[in-house]
Design a protein around this nucleic acid. Structure first.
Lengths: 193, 193
DNA sequence: GTCTATAATTGGATAGAC
DNA sequence: GTCTATCCAATTATAGAC
């Protein structure tokens, strides 16, 4: 198989495994087995475990950029775009109940490990933060755009954490509605002014 | 040293280490060194790593119960009690920025590991959930008490996650104020009725 | 109750044949 | 580009002396 193709398969498998089992608990053996590769061959593609993690984070950054672009294409209204973000805790409900938020749980794990890739993982958060900030600026809240972006980000992280802990669907729906009501309130305020 | 005394020391060291480094990344060696004990002696007190985790969770449950009782003693007003809870993200600001919330990060890790002690870790969340629910009921919101408790719990989890990711103090203060404003709004509504 | 010594396993990582 | 064989360090865990 072509070098880049195998590499892509490794990154895809590692991405999923790291999400489901955590970085530390994901071994070379596990990833190699998932791809159907020998451990020896593995080292031809990645020299160290940290290299795989870096590749996975890069891949997630690209995927996230694509998703944000997609939301921009699908919705012209900033408020509707923000709603797309808010609803991912429902869209990815099953995964979040089982494994939490991929960004939040990875960032938390890397913080505890003092891992060198920690800033890159946090950059995933920054991607959402900046994108949400841009939408709030477009809504006419330039001065508080970043604060509002962080609020939405934090709120959805909290929902993800408790959804994972309790597996309660009603709770997720209720909190999403609460956050959407808050957003609607912001929107009406900007429309009024 | 007396059996129970050494055991208590082990649990205290393991508690802190698991919080700072995560459960999987905390080895017997690390805990033994922290207590100043040989690895061999260690097995006299705890047969398996899972046993230590169970003891740590039990200890956290007791500590939490004590903290909740303390808040009840210090504040008679339910709203003030809830405010004590909301402010722990500031009170424990430094730890949360470095290691996240001890309950949220442990629950998330154990979920990914499919660890048998997962329910016990979630019980820590339930402790706060029920206590907050009791306070909201006392505030005259019996019907929505649990939903409001979960809201406060989720909100503070979100703050902890982002505080850990970004290390932003302003953000924490702002979000705590936002949550306190929400609480004040609830209180005024119950006062009016 | 604490120690040293050691087994058994798994982890990351390398060398070299094909 | 993929394999097998191997190394080394760290991990959980046990046996038995003191």
């Amino acid at each position: 198989m072509a070098r880049s193709e195998t590499r892509a398969q490794i990154v895809a498998a590692a991405d999923r495994l790291i999400y489901e089992r955590g970085f530390e608990h994901t071994s070379f053996t596990t990833i190699a087995e998932a791809v159907g590769l020998s451990r020896g061959n593995f080292y031809y593609h990645f020299k160290t475990k940290d290299e795989i993690l870096a590749a996975v984070i890069d891949s997630r950054i690209e995927t996230t950029r694509g998703m944000l672009r997609c939301w921009e294409d699908e919705a012209a209204e900033p408020a509707e775009r923000i709603r797309r973000f808010i609803r991912i805790v429902e869209t990815n409900g099953a995964d979040i109940r089982d494994f939490g938020c991929p960004v939040g749980t990875l960032t938390a794990e890397l913080a505890k490990l003092h891992h060198p890739s920690r800033p890159e993982a946090a950059a995933l958060f920054t991607l959402f933060r900046d994108w949400l900030g841009t939408q709030f600026t477009a809504l006419g809240h330039a001065a508080e755009a970043d604060a509002m972006a962080l609020h939405v980000l934090a709120f959805s992280q909290g929902i993800a954490t408790l959804a994972n802990a309790f597996g309660n669907e009603d709770f997720v729906r209720r909190e999403v509605e609460r956050l959407e009501a808050w957003l609607a309130d912001c929107t009406s305020k900007s429309a009024r002014s």
